[in-house]
Amino acid sequence: MKKTAFYIGIFLFSTNLSFSQKTNKIKELKSFALSVCIQDNYKKLNPEFDSKDYTNSFIVGDIVTISTSNLEKLRYFIYDNTKDFYKPIPSSASYEDNNANMVCYNCIEFYNSKKLRKFIKNLLKEDSDL
């Protein structure tokens, strides 16, 4: 009986650890998406923009392992879903500055989206199937 309880405990611990690691990868890849979104859209606003921010390299180099092809899929997904975030707010809005934008707000909304989370979960599933 004690052996059975021990093995069940080991199984539950390893399952919990695996779930925790996957959850952390999702969180970090969402952070990567947020960083890419902000940097890409500010670069569109000002082509000379150079943030000197190495968040993206840190996340995919030191924290998360993901295949090159899936990283490219993620980058394309980010670009495709955030490519217009730099555009000014429609003139119907009551802002004094005609060049006002909502890059950060829109990128945070994208970061929190179910669509991004689902896409990342599917990428991680693909990577684990390899």
Rank of each mutant, 00 (worst) to 15 (best):
F49C: 11
K114P: 02
A100P: 05
S69Q: 09
T55C: 05
Y79T: 13
D53S: 12
A33P: 00
E48V: 08
Y54P: 01
S92N: 09
K87Y: 11
D40A: 08
V36R: 08
F110D: 06
F49R: 12
I108P: 01
P88H: 07
E109A: 15
K115S: 08
S113A: 07
F32K: 03
Y95V: 15
I89W: 00
N122R: 10
F119Q: 08
Q21V: 11
I8N: 13
N122T: 00
P47N: 13
Y111W: 13
N112G: 07
N41S: 13
S14K: 05
I89M: 09
N56Q: 14
K114Q: 11
S51G: 07
K44G: 02
F110C: 07
F49P: 08
K125D: 06
D53K: 03
K118A: 05
L74P: 01
S20E: 02
T23F: 13
I66K: 01
K43M: 04
L45N: 13
L116S: 01
F110H: 08
M1W: 11
N106F: 03
Y42K: 08
K73R: 14
N98H: 03
K73D: 02
I78V: 08
S57V: 04
I38L: 13
V103K: 10
C107I: 02
K27C: 01
K22H: 15
P88N: 10
L17H: 07
P90I: 10
Q39P: 04
S57W: 09
S69L: 10
S18H: 15
I59H: 04
K114Y: 01
F32D: 00
F58S: 10
S128W: 10
K25H: 05
E72L: 12
I108F: 12
